[in-house]
Write a protein that binds this DNA or RNA. Sequence first.
DNA 1: CCTACCGATCGGTAGG
DNA 2: CCTACCGATCGGTAGG
Lengths: 190, 190
Amino acid sequence: MPRRGRREEILAIACRLFSQKGYHGTTIRDISEACGILAGSLYAHINTKEDLLFEITDRGADAFLRSLTPIVESDVPARQKLKLAVRAHIQVVEANLEAATVFFHEWKALTGERFSQIQEKRDQYEGLWATILAEGVREGIFQLQDEKFARLLVLSVGNWIYQWYRPDGELSAEEIADRFVSLMLHGFAR
Amino acid sequence: MPRRGRREEILAIACRLFSQKGYHGTTIRDISEACGILAGSLYAHINTKEDLLFEITDRGADAFLRSLTPIVESDVPARQKLKLAVRAHIQVVEANLEAATVFFHEWKALTGERFSQIQEKRDQYEGLWATILAEGVREGIFQLQDEKFARLLVLSVGNWIYQWYRPDGELSAEEIADRFVSLMLHGFAR
DNA sequence: CCTACCGATCGGTAGG
DNA sequence: CCTACCGATCGGTAGG
């Protein structure tokens, strides 16, 4: 008989394994063994292996969207929005490091409709960042003869953070975010 | 009988498939079919599937190292080195887009000694970038109370370029590099 | 969630 | 490079 809460446990374990070995590099048996059950028993909880990948990446996408949307919609200057947005992004990565890794690194293994669904949410997320930068230009606080490149710079940082961010560092997620914003705004030339 | 030049063709095809579907998502039969031969026949040219991944990533690593090393060792100011380095990096990505994708995205599928070998070359490459930034600090042209963050910024951009760079854009690799350097040096705040 | 199993496919090999 | 094949493993299922 399926145990209560078992499904969440399976998701967490799949998330960890996908982040370590990749989706295609992880087998149903890797997951079931880490759960202490047999391969076939996993299917009392899920329908397909791809279900796991989809649920992990979809939750990841929602976490990023939920955290950024209210900031973009808020009534503060763009410069402040940028700062809050980078903070929020790093905090989501921090709170879901393994899920973020799967979200950024493995989502392309999805197929068909599910691939498109996640792609859409990713586009939506990138659109929110673009909105902040565009606002900053309208406000005259960002100089964007290079709007496209500024966007790529911001997204590069965001899409790469999960690769090096570890929660056991000296600095808080907030401090890291603030330094990055400062760097992006003013550069590191003297 | 093995055809001359066949091995290079196999490498190119494997490179394309790995970049599209990932290493574990690509089968020996995918590769052999794209070559127009049978699965077993592939083994007249290679010993294992992992050989292909290793050779692709190792060549990728060497291409990046070969292009950056003489710049770091040259006798020009750090600011100029940074500019030349970003240009060189983008040019390597441009000239080997699929190999760069495999190098940045699939290298962790390597195992054992080969994993370590590529990891070492990656560390070496990152070390060269760190050298340029450190020189800039010594010269007094980079302000690096945030040396670590400047490095992460530069590496983020470098590690993400293969995701969006397409050779059919309006701007040349050089122009793109120069805009990025300008952004990194001076930021996009007005 | 286990027992028992399935067809398909995997990476790879022997012999020519 | 083909023919012919291998053992292992894959994702997944039926029946309890």
